[in-house]
Amino acid sequence: MERIPILKIGDVLLASIQIDLQDRDVLALQEDLAERISETGAHGVILDITAVDIVDSFIGRMFATIAATSRLFDAHTVVVGMRPAVAITLVELGLTLGEVRTALDLEKGLAILAELGEQAPR
């Protein structure tokens, strides 16, 4: 099993997924992120899936769970870099991502988080 590194940029946590995800990697990421959010008080989480070539229902559910958990710590989650073929497949699979926001790339993802941070004074 490989640990997905979590980087901190300002008050945003960034996890860039560069491996073929096993179910247990996914669960570990979920736990690691919850811990890092509570440690750092980050207000945003970015999941970069530029390198991910499939998202099945288990992986998609992980995104939704991470987003829901983040909300409990007053943080928002944005998934960035979804490949077109992955997006088409997700829709056909029938998967909705719950509270997860999506953005085309990292830059737009950070912009969404900045906007969400301004809307809710903290």
Binding site: D23, D53, I54, D56, A85, T89, L93
Partner: peptide, 17 residues
Amino acid sequence: GLVDQTKLVTATSELAR
């Protein structure tokens, strides 16, 4: 094609699980 590859791989991921 790439989309069909992705659909098939995703389907088989579900079934393997």
